[in-house]
Simulated scan of single mutants.
Amino acid sequence: MKKSFCIILFTAAVCFPLHLSAQKDKQTEKVRNEQAVKKAIDERHFRIDVNYMTPTRGRSRALTDSYSLEVRNDSLFSYLPYTGEAYSIPYGGGKALNFNAPIQTYETKEKKRGRKEVKITTSNEEDSYTYSVTISSNGSAYIHVQPIRRQPISFSGQTELEE
């Protein structure tokens, strides 16, 4: 009985510091990711690899091709698929959400649980757009696109974070 108690006590003494170390590593990683997200948003230099699409109507679906939204300084690079109703578009369908354009407004806001929200407005010869981007501290991202001449659409994906 005394021998088994000593074994249990020894095991707990060895495992408990390892558990604390793992928790500390997770916390350090979380803080590092939060700082990387904040830096990327403040410097206006981030890319979101999109892997899921949610149109206003119709079914949501996982995306198999490489789609992305990128912000570089004062420019927006949108390479996103579009499914939905268009109210007024050029003959042949136009560019939809595949374009590069200068950013007109760029607003950031702190949200709950370490999330950051970025609201970007831009336009091209076809339409005007408002991109509402929410990025979590772990890099997961949600994008809501509100065009003027088309139905809104949403996407989710993962932010590329530079170390």
Rank of each mutant, 00 (worst) to 15 (best):
S128L: 07
A40G: 09
K119L: 13
F77K: 01
I148T: 10
V37Q: 04
S88A: 09
Y67N: 02
T54H: 10
F10M: 12
S78T: 05
L69A: 07
G139Y: 09
V145R: 10
A13Q: 09
E125F: 09
T64A: 11
P55R: 03
N138Q: 06
I41F: 03
S136H: 04
T54M: 14
K111M: 14
G114F: 13
A40M: 08
R57C: 00
V50A: 07
T122N: 02
T130N: 09
I148W: 06
D127H: 07
I41D: 01
S156H: 11
L80C: 03
K38Q: 11
L69T: 02
P102A: 11
L161A: 05
Y106V: 04
D74S: 11
E34V: 03
K24Q: 15
T121K: 10
S140N: 14
I48D: 00
R47S: 01
E162Q: 07
D25M: 10
Q146N: 14
I148G: 00
Q158D: 08
I148F: 08
I103S: 00
S78D: 06
I8W: 04
G93T: 13
T28E: 15
R72P: 01
T122L: 03
S68R: 02
E85C: 03
T28L: 15
D65K: 13
M1V: 09
T64S: 11
E107H: 12
T122H: 03
A12G: 13
H19A: 04
S66W: 10
Q151A: 13
L20Y: 08
N138F: 00
T105R: 04
E117M: 11
F77D: 02
V133K: 01
G94P: 01
S66N: 11
Y67V: 02
Q27D: 15
Y82K: 03
S21G: 04
E43L: 12
R44H: 10
L18H: 02
M53F: 12
Y67K: 01
F16A: 14
G92Q: 13
E163R: 06
T54D: 04
D127Q: 08
K39C: 04
V14L: 12
P147T: 05
N124V: 05
T105F: 01
N124P: 05
N138H: 01
T105Y: 02
V37I: 04
K3W: 13
Y82N: 02
S154H: 07
Q104Y: 04
F155N: 01
R59Y: 12
V133A: 01
R72Q: 02
S128D: 09
Q27I: 14
G139H: 05
A62W: 06
M1C: 04
E117Q: 14
E125M: 04
T108W: 08
G84L: 06
A36S: 08
A12H: 06
S78G: 14
G93K: 13
E34N: 15
C6G: 06
F46E: 00
F5R: 15
I8P: 00
V71P: 00
I143N: 00
R59W: 08
E107K: 14
R57A: 06
V50F: 00
V31A: 15
K95R: 14
E85T: 11
V37C: 06
